[in-house]
């Protein structure tokens, strides 16, 4: 089972997600998220190269690397500096256990994607799909097991990266307008939730989302 460069890059992305699930330091998590997105940007650029240097896909690779890989993490780092919160505490499952859970999910993703048909332009479909689905699982684990609102945003971004990677490896080029729309929606969503984090800190004097339980039946 020898992986080629492209497959190693996509698995690199899914390994960073596993590390994020294990680390509770917010700066480390954001740095790892940035590395993950750079991997995905690189994988996109490699796809563009394979498609006879398609300029449109190169454009998307640049947009992802700059917007999601650099600007979003930098904004979130500025946010945590302002709120003065450095690390997160696990809520339901301790962080090391959550990391092991994501590794189990990586194996599970491999089992899940074997039923999918092999995409047209790849000789084998499992590496890309496994990495993508494991990213979605890791993001969900992070959203479910962390207390701090920033970690929820990072979890959502990882899920989104996984879905993007799935589209990259399992389809032959999504329509450009859809790609751009998705990127825009995600960015605006992150900005709004970032703003809300400030508001939560301001009104509740904490950003522990597990303690947001005033509304119930």
């Amino acid at each position: 089972m020898i992986l080629n460069l492209f497959e190693m890059v996509v698995f690199g992305a899914s390994f960073t997600a596993i590390l994020i699930a294990g680390a509770t330091h917010l700066r480390v998590n954001l740095a790892l998220y940035s590395v993950q997105t750079l991997f995905i940007g690189f994988a996109t650029a490699m796809t563009a190269h394979a498609h006879a240097d398609d300029m449109g896909i190169y454009g998307i690779a640049c947009a992802i690397t700059i917007l999601k890989g650099l600007i979003v993490p930098v904004c979130l780092v500025m946010a945590i500096d302002k709120i003065r919160i450095q690390s997160d505490a696990a809520s339901i499952i301790p962080a090391p256990l959550a990391m092991h859970l994501t590794i189990v999910f990586l194996g599970l993703s491999y089992l899940l994607v074997r039923g999918l048909p092999v995409p047209l332009e790849f000789s084998r479909g499992w590496p890309g799909a496994t990495a993508a689905i494991s990213l979605v699982f890791s993001g969900l684990v992070l959203m479910l097991t962390r207390r701090i609102a920033i970690s929820q945003i990072v979890g959502f971004l990882i899920i989104e990266n996984g879905i993007y990677l799935f589209a990259l490896t399992q389809t032959h080029g999504m329509p450009m307008i859809v790609e751009m729309g998705v990127l825009l929606d995600v960015l605006v969503g992150v900005m709004i939730s970032g703003l809300l984090v400030f508001k939560i800190q301001h009104s509740f004097e904490h950003i522990d989302v597990t303690r947001l339980t005033q509304l119930k039946d």
């Binding site: 969900l140 799935f166 969503g189 939730s193 809300l196 939560i200 509740f204 509304l215």
Partner: peptide, 23 residues
């Protein structure tokens, strides 16, 4: 604020799954 946060997070993740379905 609490309602907005829950709304944004739950719906964004839900809609992300719809994106996976679209793909």
């Amino acid at each position: 604020l609490e309602a907005t946060w829950k709304y944004l997070m739950i719906c964004s993740v839900g809609i992300a799954f719809a994106l996976l379905g679209t793909i």
